[in-house]
């Protein structure tokens, strides 16, 4: 376990020292503040559209950070050959992989906290209220979702070139966000072989839309039931475990030179 966290620590240090996070954060903040400074119809207490834009930017920024960070870990180790002195130490490939995943996930968690703190400030400034439980639930589910995405990017990095991996994972995630939840309805209407295939895809893909509480926090709905939160956590854990097992199997067989 210490070895996994040692590898994770290096990933976190890398993210802290890279400029991606800072650039995306500044852009998110700048666009949100710019949008927030517009007054519509002399009504200066409008809040939800600013919250919506801010959250959309947070979701996109953290998606990009997660996919690029997780997707580059193993290829960059191989390309810069840092994997060689590392594997010459008493650490298995599975531990390296898990360390990379944990590092990405923790780093993204840290990123999420920073982004949501900004969102909280905007929300308080506009609406004069901070529904803490809702926000904590939203951060938790968002983090779980990014865990699945990170694991997906790690698997992809073992099968595809880095550019293809990043593009495919981002497009795949956007696809799941937008149409994933409707595949069952599509399958029911299509029928036949295509319907069965659509159903299979529906049950195979991770349903990332489950982890999206944006509408609830934008429109001030009450918190989600804790039982449902537990189920979502379990659902995410199962997907992360499956994807990481697949990644470990692939990485163990992957020639390094």
């Amino acid at each position: 376990m210490n070895r996994i966290f040692a590898v994770a620590e290096v990933v976190i240090r890398e993210l802290i020292r890279r400029k991606d996070f800072y650039v995306l954060f500044v852009l998110t903040a700048a666009i949100t503040l710019l949008m927030g400074s517009i007054t519509f119809f002399n009504e200066d207490t409008i809040a939800r559209y600013v919250k919506e834009i801010c959250l959309l930017l947070i979701w996109l920024a953290t998606l990009v950070i997660t996919v690029t960070t997780a997707g580059r870990q193993l290829p960059a180790e191989k390309e810069s050959r840092t994997i060689f002195p590392l594997l010459a130490k008493p650490i298995s490939r599975t531990e390296v992989l898990l360390g990379k995943f944990v590092g990405c996930w923790l780093a993204v968690g840290f990123t999420l906290i920073v982004f949501y703190l900004f969102f909280g400030v905007i929300s308080v400034a506009r609406e004069h209220e901070l529904p803490l439980v809702n926000y904590l639930q939203a951060i938790w589910l968002h983090w779980l979702m990014l865990g699945i995405v990170g694991a997906l990017a790690l698997v992809g990095s073992l099968l595809l070139t880095p550019a293809a991996n990043v593009s495919i994972v981002i497009l795949g995630v956007l696809g799941i966000w937008t149409v994933g939840e409707f595949l069952n309805q599509l399958a029911a209407r299509t029928g036949g072989l295509v319907g069965w295939v659509t159903y299979a895809v529906y049950f195979a893909i991770p349903h990332l839309e489950i982890f999206d509480l944006r509408e609830r926090i934008i429109h001030g709905w009450e918190p989600v039931a804790w039982g449902a939160m537990g189920l979502a956590t379990l659902y995410a854990a199962v997907y992360m475990a499956m994807l990481l097992t697949l990644a470990a199997l692939l990485f163990r067989r992957k020639p390094l030179n």
Binding site: H207, R216, V224
Partner: peptide, 8 residues
């Protein structure tokens, strides 16, 4: 899945 998603 639909039932789970509807809770969020």
């Amino acid at each position: 899945i639909a039932r789970l998603a509807s809770r969020f």
